[in-house]
Amino acid sequence: MPALPSWLTEPLWDQFAALLPERPEYHPDHPLGCHRQRIGDRIIFDKMLQLLRFGCSYEAIAGTTCSATTIRDRRDEWIRQGLFVRLKQIALESYGRIVGLVLDQIAVDGAITKAPGGGEAAGRSPVDRGKQGLKRSGMTDGYGIPLGRVLAGANRHDSPLLAPTLDRLNDLGPLPHDITVHLDAGYDSDKPARCSMNVASTAASPTRARRRLSRPASAGMSNAPTPGRTSSPGSPAATNGAPPSSTPSSTSPIPSSPYVA
């Protein structure tokens, strides 16, 4: 049974295949010009769609066509080449053009997940007996469409991750003049404001810093759940599917900062 219907996978593969670099037909270092045949990229691509769709392990999805090690190696190769970052950018741009991203309402929140394999960003989890875990600081638009995330150790607080998470907005092109950022009680301090001030003042490019300073976000602090998950004032669920307004009705404003309050 296919993970996704062909009318969806075929255009997705065509777009991904266009990002793949050219590869020589034969191994250049082999004296006879022959080597073990490389598993086709389309096979690995379909396997990865199955992993995302069914949530199974690499060993469970491997078969006679390719091994679990091959899937992992090809995944790491594509990550190093930046293919998934470019594919994500294309997907967001296409969605924004066809459906429309609600960028005047942004929700940011953190979540702790397991990381049994460790990794550079993993740390001791405070909710899993000190085992390895990750803190995922995610950002969505007003309808809950993922816009970006930042990974850190599970023992990191949400507040210091707010500024690098909002940094992902720079990849989305033109932004609305007024942006409301919905946060939970974990951000109820002056740390988010200080982080945004530091990011604006220490940006790598002066032009980039001025752009942030010239477009301050009218942010609000709210204890309401993330927009798009449960009904909360100003969220799509509370407006019967209507796009949220750029002026929040239930958030209490706090002093504005160059990027977010």
Rank of each mutant, 00 (worst) to 15 (best):
L4Q: 09
S6A: 15
W7A: 14
T9K: 03
W13V: 07
W13E: 03
A18S: 12
A18V: 06
L19K: 00
L20M: 06
H30A: 12
I44S: 07
L51W: 13
L51P: 11
C56R: 12
E59I: 05
T65N: 11
T65F: 12
C66S: 12
S67H: 05
R72W: 08
W78N: 08
F84H: 14
R86W: 00
R86C: 03
L87D: 02
I90Y: 14
L92P: 07
L92R: 10
R97Y: 04
V99T: 12
G100A: 12
G100R: 11
L103C: 14
A107N: 09
V108T: 09
V108A: 04
A122D: 01
V127K: 03
K131F: 05
S137K: 02
T140W: 00
G144L: 04
L147E: 00
G148L: 10
R149L: 15
V150T: 10
G153L: 10
H157W: 05
D158F: 05
S159Q: 15
L161M: 11
L162E: 00
A163D: 03
P164S: 04
T165H: 09
T165A: 05
N170E: 14
N170G: 15
D171N: 13
D178R: 06
H182Y: 15
A185G: 12
C195S: 06
V199P: 00
V199W: 08
A204Y: 01
T207S: 04
T207D: 04
A217K: 01
G220E: 06
G220M: 06
G228F: 10
A237E: 06
T239S: 13
A242P: 00
S246G: 09
V260F: 10
A261F: 06
